[in-house]
Each structure stands twice: as structure tokens, then as C-alpha cells.
């Protein structure tokens, strides 16, 4: 039995009743202390925020200074239509207002400024950081900062590219309880995670045959964008020849066959450009939300360390990528 602990308020007990039946009071209490930062209010991040605010994290800080545009609201239901007319309000502010309304027990705030300009100490104020679409260099930078803090900061980077989605998780070291199959008793487990840098350094030749094609295709696409000096997602079908050439040289460097990824997958990724398919956002945002809840509550086995979803085949696949 759990030791006696502080009680949930009557309001918490009433609103969270159904989920407490899934993860227990103790997990709920831990969750309600978690401080979460999200960066970049895309559709998949809007889904993620909805999920973790409903679940009852302690606080949620949103960073996104961009303007409210019709395009920004394409897959983001946190933006009310009449706000699009308004002046001087940022995307983060608009989303924060909706989220506060979803669950008044969660502190939601919009943090002004760009994430690149935040001092290193800023990141220490959080227990988990979720990056939306961002460059590979920013992701590495934030991941390293998370790893350097005195307390464990869960790191997530997630992106939806049209019909495809990917999630990377680094919990550094994580301990959790879950029911053992043999006797249904709670048992404690320990997991260690590689950093993003380490995961990226794994040679492609060493991957098992059945590794998700999306892992290679998305890496190639991101490296291509970086090499071309593009914003993530700023690509189109016209980039296909250049991307295929880039892929060819990547395969040569990694000593793998070019048919590892088929051309139609690249076509599809390029064709989506910067848009997100809303049902894929819902699926991906659901997975991120669920993973964050597991990590913050210490209840249940979190995934390690990549997740890929492709609407074309409907598979949601976990890949473990770590140096030998």
C-alpha cells in the first residue's frame, strides 16, 4: 500500500475521477506538480497541450511569439476564430487563454520572446520540455541544456509532416512502477536514455532491417533543409530532384542501399510542405500527452526513444535508437 499522503481537493477528486481509476492518486499528485514548457504552437502541440492540461499538470508555459494567421489556425483549435481579427496578441497568448478555460486548476502562461534568446537558467524552471517543429540544431542545443540541469528534465521533440509524424524522447534516467505480468504486483524499473546527439550518431548500417522507413526519410529531409538554409517544413514537390541527390550521397556516406526509402515517401513528405494533417496531429499529440503523463507521474512504462506514425499504413511504431 502507498504510505499516507496529502489528499486531493474535492474538486480534483471529482474532475479527475475517471483518470485516477487508470493511474491512481499518487500519480495524479505527482502530475499536478509537473512544470511543463512547450515551444512552437503547431497543431500537434495544440493537441498535446489540450491533453496535458486536461490531465492536470501543475503548470504549462507556452513559447511562440508569432502572429495569429489563418495558416497558424489550420490545425490549431486553440485559436478562436474571432481572435484572428485582433491586434497585438501572440499565438502563445491566444492558446494560453483557451487552455486556461479547459482546466482552471492548471497554471497556464505565455512566455514572451524567442526560445533561442532564453538564458540557460530559464530551462531549469521546468520538469519537461516539448519542442514542436524546430531545426535539428535547436533540438540538440535544448536537449543538451536539459541534460545539464541539476534535476531531471524530460525532453520531447515532436513534428507532424502532413500524413507522417515523429517523436523523440530523452528522459536521461527514469525510474517507474508498473504491474508485473506474473503476479500483477507493482514493480520498480530503471531506464536510461541516450541524448539526441548520441541517437543521431548511430550509423545507419547498424539498424535492424525492419526499422521504420520514416526514421531515415525524416532525417534526410531535416538535414536537407538545414543544408539548404531552409526553415523546417519550407519545402515543396519541386525539391524532389535535389532531395533525391542529397539522399543518394547520404546513403553513400552511411554505406546503405538507396532503396532503403522509396521515392513516393519523399514525394509525400515534400508535397505536405509545412502543413499538418489534423487526424495525425490528434494521434501524435495523444501519444506525446500520454508519454509525458507516464514520465511525470512515474507510473507506467514510457517509450524509448522514437515513435513514428504514418497514415498511409496506419502503423504506430516505437524504435529504440542508442549507440552500442
Amino acid at each position: 500500500m502507498d504510505p499516507p499522503t496529502e489528499l486531493l481537493t474535492e474538486q480534483e477528486a471529482a474532475v479527475y475521477d475517471r483518470q485516477i481509476r487508470v493511474w491512481g492518486v499518487d500519480a495524479q499528485r505527482k502530475l499536478s506538480k509537473a512544470r511543463v514548457l512547450v515551444v512552437g504552437m503547431s497543431g500537434v502541440i495544440a493537441e498535446t497541450c489540450k491533453n496535458i492540461v486536461l490531465a492536470g499538470v501543475g503548470s504549462l508555459t507556452l513559447v511562440d511569439d508569432s502572429k495569429l494567421t489563418l495558416e497558424a489556425s489550420a490545425a490549431n483549435f486553440l485559436i478562436q476564430f474571432d481572435e484572428l481579427e485582433g491586434q497585438g496578441i501572440t499565438l502563445a497568448e491566444a492558446c494560453a487563454a483557451s487552455l486556461r478555460d479547459y482546466n482552471p486548476m492548471v497554471q497556464v502562461k505565455a512566455e514572451a520572446g524567442s526560445i533561442q534568446n532564453k538564458p540557460d537558467s530559464f530551462f531549469g524552471n521546468f520538469d519537461a520540455i516539448i519542442l514542436g517543429r524546430s531545426s535539428i540544431s535547436l533540438r540538440k542545443h535544448v536537449n543538451e541544456l536539459c541534460r545539464k540541469q541539476g534535476h531531471r528534465i524530460g525532453f520531447y521533440s515532436v513534428d507532424c509532416r502532413g500524413t507522417c509524424g515523429s517523436l523523440f524522447v530523452d528522459l536521461k534516467s527514469h525510474s517507474y512502477v508498473s504491474k508485473r505480468a506474473k503476479d500483477d504486483k507493482d514493480a520498480r524499473h530503471e531506464l536510461t536514455y541516450p541524448s539526441l546527439e548520441e541517437a543521431l550518431s548511430v550509423p545507419w548500417k547498424s539498424f535492424p532491417k525492419r526499422t521504420s522507413k520514416l526514421l531515415f526519410a525524416l532525417r534526410c529531409l531535416e538535414d536537407f533543409e538545414h543544408a539548404e538554409g531552409r526553415q523546417p517544413g519550407h519545402v515543396s514537390s519541386q525539391d524532389l530532384p535535389a532531395l533525391l541527390a542529397f539522399w543518394k550521397s547520404a546513403c553513400e556516406a552511411q554505406k546503405v542501399a538507396e532503396n532503403l526509402v522509396s521515392e513516393p515517401l519523399f514525394q509525400r513528405l515534400l508535397g505536405s510542405g509545412s502543413s499538418e494533417l489534423p487526424p495525425v496531429c490528434a494521434i501524435l499529440g495523444g501519444i506525446v500527452g500520454q508519454e509525458l503523463i507516464k514520465a511525470m507521474s512515474g507510473k507506467g512504462e514510457p517509450l524509448r526513444n522514437y515513435f513514428f506514425f504514418d497514415a498511409a499504413d496506419g502503423k504506430g511504431i516505437i524504435e529504440m535508437v542508442a549507440p552500442k
Binding site: 483518470q19 481509476r21 493537441e47 495525425v280 496531429c281 490528434a282 503523463i293 496506419g314
Partner: peptide, 28 residues
């Protein structure tokens, strides 16, 4: 009383994330 209520009321365990995922799959 929490557990007994769940049993007596046949209460379903329910969380937002699974519903969001399932709704996404329905639309696909």
C-alpha cells in the same frame, strides 16, 4: 469508497489521450 464506487457503478476508466488517438484513427 473510491474503489467500491467504481465497482458498484461499473465505472469506465477513461483518459483524454486514448480518445484523441482513437478519434484521429476514425477520421483516417
Amino acid at each position: 469508497v473510491f474503489e467500491a464506487k467504481g465497482m458498484a457503478g461499473n465505472i469506465i476508466h477513461a483518459i483524454a489521450t486514448t480518445n484523441a488517438i482513437i478519434a484521429g484513427l476514425i477520421v483516417l
